[in-house]
Amino acid sequence: MNSGLAPPTNGSTEVYAVRLLKRRRLDGGTFEFTLSRPDGFSFRAGQRIRFEHPTGERDYSLVNGPAAAELQVCVRIVQDGQFTPRLARAAIHSRFDISGPHGYFIFQPATRPAVFVASGTGIAPFVAMARSGVRGFRLLHGARTADGLYYQAELRAAAAGYVACLSKAAAAAAAPPDAFAGRVTAYLAAHLAPGAYDFYLCGRSEMIRDVTLLVDRRFPASLVYSEIFF
């Protein structure tokens, strides 16, 4: 956020101890981590937890819905990072400290059609929304290759419309037959009919910026809710 006036934090400052229960590889550099859920820890779909680690704080959106018995996050491993390699190597049952839930990226039911736009691990809050019963949305799922379309089958089943947008042109051949060859912005510019929508954007700042500016030009009566992965 760069507004200078962010909403007051809604996250508890309480720190919870959790245990790493499971690690599942989603593609070459991204894992889903399953953590124990502390007693009394409640959250809403779309919110984040914060790892309180000696190397600093790291926020990750929860993948599961609020009714789940455990906590799950989707993390891309940064090879020269200070935290994610440790998480990737941590032994099962290792302890981590978290706080939360944090954030306001919550689905707001409205009469305008909802368009979810995700890139990379930015798909996480949308998986949580789908798992908590949100339906009727259109999802633009951006990735470089088909391997990066995490949770695709589950999301296809929940969405009213699902479009895989693959930015690496050569990858399109091995992609789902209905995949769009190009970035999510290119799809929005060419294929989403003009109108008023509720856009939910989650991903890297460059994608958020490009989609937001496109919305200003092409869909100016729309609402935009953003969750930026820095």
């Binding site: 937001t212 500016l213 609402l223």
Partner: peptide, 21 residues
């Protein structure tokens, strides 16, 4: 951590309620 996105470079910003103004 970067604190800028550039999403407001053309004079608009997002309200907390989602509107672009």
């Amino acid at each position: 951590m970067k604190i800028y996105t550039g999403g407001g470079d053309q004079g608009r910003t997002s309200l907390f309620s989602g509107e672009r103004v």
